[in-house]
Simulated assay, not measured.
Amino acid sequence: MTQMATETDSQSSSEEIDWRSESSSAEMTRRDRAEEFYRRWVYEPVVIAWSDVRTRLGILILGGYLLMAAVDVFGLWRNPSTNQAPQLLPPFENWSFPLGTTNSGVDLLALIIDSTPFILLMVLAGGVWATSLAVVVGTVSGYKGGRVDTAITSVSDFFMAIPGLPLVIVLAIALSPENPILLGVVLTINYWAGLGRSIRSQVLSIREASYVEASRTMGTSTPRIIVKDVLPNIMPYVMVNFVLAARYTIFASVGLYFIGVLPYTGQNWGVTLNNAYYQGGLFTTEALHWLLVPMIAIVGLAFGLILLSQGMDRIFNPRVRTRLSGESESVEEDENTTTTGMF
């Protein structure tokens, strides 16, 4: 009996050791997964982005606009509606008003800062709405095919057939949107259709690739195949078009504010352009800075977005990631060794 008890105790202790080792290995697996996630989605994108001059410059430019938005949100600069200064003060003459003033003595820098949060929210909403809907429509239509593809393509063709600018003008007059998120959606209401068709054409070729066929053979679900195999291959194209949609939102809003279609508020650079144009900014040198300051703000934001999109292509490029991990160097060494052996 004593021997049997001893064997039972030893067996239970060994089972406890096995259980501890299994839990330790499971814990290590979770840790490894966390480290892999950090390396793949945080460390490598940051290193690749910062290694490109264009991306660094784009980040710095957009960081400047985010800083101006933060200054306005926290009230760190004067409110343009309560500010009175010398009329048409030139820029860099009085550092209390570094960008000069309007013919009413309003600080131009205060006007630009006051408009920045509204502009950024509108641009983000328009870009996210257009690209997100286009990605969903294009990937599902291109991958599923059949009746699903026919139905989605018909809807996309319908929206593509509607002239974009007249539709936006009608919706802007009918809705008079003052919320920046709603305004961004209205401005890109049918922008997604053409982008969705372009994404669909790319997905049609990707779904015939060998690795996608292998995933289907192994019984992988359609959503997982789209997320793991299809989307990573089209992300550079999607990011570039996100920037194009954001830039379109900027120019469309400024143009519609300029011609007076959208609600006339001070929270847009188009309103500042309109005031400068109709009050002599284009015809007198004294008011020229009043016209140039909002134009520089518009071009600067679009330029920063373009530089960032060019850097995004490097982030999603698998060759750059391979070079970062050092695998390409070993491949090159093998190729050089093979070439040397041949000669």
Rank of each mutant, 00 (worst) to 15 (best):
T2P: 02
Q11N: 08
S12R: 15
S13V: 02
S13W: 13
S14H: 04
E16M: 11
R20C: 03
R20P: 02
S23W: 11
S23H: 07
M28H: 02
M28L: 12
T29C: 00
R31M: 11
R31F: 11
D32L: 13
Y38N: 09
E44A: 15
P45Q: 04
V53Q: 14
I59C: 14
I61W: 01
I61G: 00
L67H: 02
M68P: 00
A69G: 13
A69K: 10
A70N: 01
G75Y: 07
S81N: 10
T82V: 07
T82Y: 00
N83G: 10
P86M: 08
Q87T: 10
L89M: 14
P91T: 05
N94S: 11
S96V: 05
P98N: 09
P98W: 08
L99I: 05
T101I: 01
T101D: 06
T102V: 07
N103D: 12
D107N: 14
L108R: 02
L111D: 06
D114F: 14
T116R: 04
T116Y: 05
P117E: 09
P117H: 04
L120H: 06
L120I: 14
L124N: 00
G126Y: 06
G126N: 07
G127Q: 08
G127V: 03
W129T: 06
W129G: 03
A130E: 10
A130T: 15
L133M: 09
L133C: 03
A134W: 06
V135Y: 02
V136R: 02
Y143E: 06
Y143N: 07
G145P: 05
G146H: 04
D149Q: 12
S154Y: 13
S154N: 11
S154Q: 12
S156M: 15
D157A: 04
L165R: 03
P166T: 09
L167V: 00
I169T: 05
I169S: 00
A172C: 09
L175V: 15
P177D: 08
I181K: 01
V186N: 02
L187M: 07
I189C: 13
I189P: 08
I189R: 04
I199Q: 03
R200K: 13
Q202L: 10
I206F: 03
R207Y: 04
E208Q: 12
S210A: 12
E213H: 05
A214E: 04
A214L: 09
M218P: 01
G219F: 07
G219L: 06
T220S: 14
I226H: 00
V227Q: 09
V227L: 15
I234G: 12
M235F: 05
P236L: 00
V238E: 01
F242H: 03
V243P: 15
A246H: 03
R247P: 00
R247M: 12
T249Y: 01
F251G: 11
L256C: 05
F258G: 07
G260L: 01
Y264T: 15
T265E: 14
W269E: 10
T272I: 14
N274T: 00
N275S: 12
A276C: 05
Y277H: 10
A287W: 00
W290C: 04
V293D: 10
V293S: 11
V293F: 10
P294D: 09
A297L: 06
V299W: 03
G300L: 06
L301I: 15
G311W: 13
I315S: 10
F316K: 06
N317H: 08
P318Q: 03
T322Y: 06
T322K: 12
S325E: 13
E329Q: 13
S330D: 11
E333C: 00
T337N: 09
T338C: 04
T339H: 13
M342R: 13
